[in-house]
Nucleic acid binder design. Structure first.
Lengths: 264, 264
DNA sequence: TGTATTGGTTCATTATTCAAACCATTGGTT
DNA sequence: AACCAATGGTTTGAATAATGAACCAATACA
């Protein structure tokens, strides 16, 4: 593992639950030498990627990140394409909606939107989603290449009792998603949460996924139908905003989903 | 220079004008070995901080940056505090308004807003502002500590004929800003652009600056008075949003500015 | 007072980077 | 087709960094 990779790994420990981390915590979390950790943190700080809370001396995300994110968003807009579709999806379904972006090593949560209707709603903590254990991941795998599948198969930790354990289980789930155009995961990542996801495309192909995370006990057949319909609409809108086209096979699968409902 | 610092430096070469950079360009821009540059880029890519454009193989900012920026904004909102004040400042003055955040090595542009009134307006290209050559930098220096001034004096490249060259010139400009509460820079960074800036504060002290960049030929005494008034209002609002307090000396300086106008 | 924990620093050992060469591919010219 | 000048990417021993165990200073707590 390169020095740079080690330093970058430190950034992975930040989350909405843990937005500030001190030297000793980093030392323990990363299981790396304290001196080394300190040097890495200092280097990241002087680059502006981190900054120290003057009061606690704990490290947090620095302002340089804002500049980089702004630049990416100006030249390659992604969040902008969600601005209307994601709140609409959350409101129409009454559940939490989120969209994630596919990169070399998995899915990164781009944005999430919570429905105002229910007091009990799914709150997202993780911003990095595993391919094999989330509806979003399955949706991406269903329309990604074999290389992506290989990376998913490389590491398959079990999060709950129902997380796919074997390559066969995973491939079966992916095949179902490919056939129906929507991935459904029943408590494979977090207990009590059922995930529904549709793939998103940009001009280069599969680019991410849009998903609804619903409280499992609330999912009735009626709600599920509503979620699937809204999810297809949202995915169509977002992919169009991102300059992507829906593959014919997926368009057909979606039409088949909607067909029985809209037929006279 | 540490390996991490070198890798981080690569990120500095991105700008709105140059959002994608290939291996050979990096090799030339950073004046560093091609093999090493490639390893650094690969490491940054596998961390998600960069990604390769599949068509051109050039590198661009990766999706991990969006996740980090989102996290910072949720836990330490800064952009949110500008949402109302910055557009108002641009509209009221008819010129381009922008706000920047102070970090260890200078100012980073957070957001900018262009006035709709004029077809000729200042368009910002640089997201990294030098302390010694911009109104924002002078404003920050006027209310920052000596350490910040030391860093400003360490590197003072000349951008135009009127950029401060000597430490004395800079310290004089800073003293004027400290006395009046507003920094004014006449074409010290870009020719044809006059900058006006006020310091911004958060709970820890000086945190950045809010500025108006005006087309120099359009600046009349009337416009200048308008800009100063609006700038003070904007700075007060934003600092309040950021949880900061205006130092008494600055409040007095601003009152003196406004005083002569509002006196009967 | 003693102890545990914090952030931060030092110095031999070990791993990485450097520079300059080389490969393979692509796009344009003659 | 042959050629040229780019591109991204890889390989080689000599130079230069990174590493980790122990150490230091300050704070908090009992």
């Amino acid at each position: 593992m390169s020095t740079i990779a080690k330093a970058m790994e430190l950034l992975e420990f930040f989350s909405l639950d843990r937005p500030e981390i001190g030297l000793s915590d980093f030392h323990r979390l990363a299981r790396r030498d304290k001196a080394t950790t300190f040097r890495h943190l200092s280097a990241l700080e002087s680059a502006g990627l981190l900054e120290q809370n003057p009061a606690t001396r704990a490290y947090r995300i620095g302002p340089a990140v804002l500049r980089l994110a702004h630049m990416r968003e100006v030249t390659l807009p992604r969040r902008a394409g969600l601005r209307v579709a994601l709140p609409r999806l959350a409101e129409a379904t009454g559940e939490t909606a989120h969209a994630s972006l596919l990169d070399a090593s998995g899915l990164t949560t781009l944005a999430h939107h919570e429905a105002p209707q229910h007091s009990a709603r799914v709150v997202l903590h993780e911003s990095r989603l595993p391919l094999h254990a989330t509806a979003s991941g399955i949706a991406a795998l269903a329309f990604g290449d074999e290389d992506l599948m290989k990376r998913a198969l490389a590491a398959m930790p079990a999060y709950t009792d129902t997380t796919a354990r074997s390559p066969e289980d995973l491939q079966a789930a992916v095949a179902r998603a490919r056939a129906s155009g929507i991935a459904i995961s029943n408590q494979t990542f977090e207990t009590g949460v059922t995930g529904f996801a549709a793939p998103l495309f940009d001009s280069t192909g599969i680019a991410g996924a849009v998903a609804v995370a619903a409280v499992s006990s609330r999912v009735t057949p009626e709600l599920q139908t509503l979620i699937l319909t809204e999810l297809m609409n949202a995915a169509r809108t977002i992919s169009a905003n991102w300059g992507g086209t829906i593959p014919p096979a997926l368009a057909a699968a979606w039409a088949a989903q909607a067909g029985p409902e809209t037929a006279p």
